[in-house]
């Protein structure tokens, strides 16, 4: 297992290099322009000057190599410096500069991370916590009213796009009932019970929308997988041995049903990092999702590239973790 892990980690380096190159080329090919946002009153020659000032005059391979150096050497040194508090660890050179804000990409990401972790991370956690028990019980009591209701809610929750449920919740809870604010205040510092209550109120709607969406998906996989296993022979054997239902279901069946669920959860965790694009925009949470989408619309190549590659690293990492967990839950799976 250790050898396998090491091999996969080493293999991850060329994989990620290739992914970074692919993303870079994709963004190069993509028909956007950082000047698209500017008013039409700015004449073409000024636009060309602005493009050159962004460094877009250089050939693509030079820009890629420069970015790669900054991303793999300079930016990590700044991250290290801010974690340890040792300022002199940071390499003093130019950093990855965003086209839109002309400021280091790393600083903006660090600024956005808390909002996203609070809202998207929390709702993912809630989603899993809600989904697993519902999925298990739905499968155990298949076609009971509980199962039917669960199916109904989760399918409706999944099939309604968040760009619909978001405004609907705003209309009901902010405008008609006046319970929650429309505007998420990202500058709120939770330092008292009063502010904590405010934070809870402003988080309520986005967290609810996302939890519903995440839980719907995971519940379906959990239920299907449990159903598959509940009819297996080993379950009959376990029951025949006189084990309690509790142990049969929660230990034997659950453990064997976890593989697809782990996959889905592991696929979802990196997505916390890219944030919830639509939900963040509707509720103005202004986390990483909103950052990514505004960067894409503005063709802010350094920002999109950096975010996407960090996302790729997380994907590779969590897929490895999922693979390792398979072997934990099902010892028959062996990689060596």
């Amino acid at each position: 297992m250790f050898n396998y892990t090491m091999r996969r980690l080493l293999l991850a380096i060329p994989t990620l290099l290739f992914i970074a190159l692919a993303i870079f080329l994709l963004l190069e090919l993509s028909p956007g322009d950082p000047m698209a946002d500017m008013p039409l009153t700015i004449p073409p020659d000024v636009r060309e000057q602005m493009r050159l000032a962004l460094g877009l005059g250089e050939p693509w391979y030079i820009r890629f190599v420069k970015w790669l150096y900054l991303f793999s050497v300079v930016e990590p040194s700044h991250v290290l410096a801010s974690i340890t508090g040792l300022e002199n660890l940071a390499i003093d050179s130019q950093r990855i500069i965003s086209f839109q804000t002309r400021s280091p990409v790393g600083d903006i990401i660090a600024q956005r991370l808390p909002q996203t972790l609070w809202v998207v991370g929390l709702s993912y956690l809630f989603g899993i916590m809600v989904a697993l028990p519902i999925g298990i019980y739905s499968a155990y009591r298949q076609y009971s009213w509980f199962d039917q209701a669960g199916t109904f809610v989760s399918m409706v929750g999944f099939s309604l796009p968040t760009f619909f449920t978001g405004p609907l919740l705003i209309l009901i809870f902010s405008i008609w009932l006046g319970w929650f604010p429309i505007i998420y205040d990202t500058t709120l510092v939770v330092d008292s019970w009063h502010n904590f209550a405010l934070q809870m109120r402003q988080m309520a709607m986005p967290v609810f929308v996302l939890t519903l969406y995440n839980a719907a998906q995971i519940t379906r996989f959990m239920r299907a997988s449990m159903l598959d296993n509940l009819t297996q022979d080993y379950v009959r054997t376990a029951r025949a041995k006189g084990l309690t239902e509790r142990i049969v279901v929660l230990v034997h069946v659950l453990r064997n049903s976890m593989i697809p669920v782990i996959t889905v959860i592991a696929l979802g965790i990196p997505q916390i990092f890219t944030g919830a694009i639509i939900t963040e925009q509707i509720f103005r949470v202004n986390g990483l999702g909103q950052l990514l989408i505004t960067a894409i619309y503005a063709t802010d190549i350094p920002m999109v590239l950096t975010l996407s590659v960090v996302f790729a690293i997380l994907i590779v990492l969590f897929n490895l973790i999922a693979d390792l967990l398979y072997a934990v839950f099902d010892p028959r799976i062996r990689y060596d």
């Binding site: 000032a53 965003s98 804000t101 002309r102 990202t186 500058t187 202004n286 950052l291 505004t294």
Partner: peptide, 29 residues
């Protein structure tokens, strides 16, 4: 060419206007 390196100045310009910047979060608040 050094214009983009001046993040501090670009985010917190000193002006003559009625208000001054306390905190600037790009693309947010």
């Amino acid at each position: 060419a050094r214009a983009p390196e001046c993040t501090e100045a670009n985010f917190n310009p000193i002006g003559t206007g009625p208000f001054r910047v306390v905190d600037f979060r790009p693309n947010d608040v």
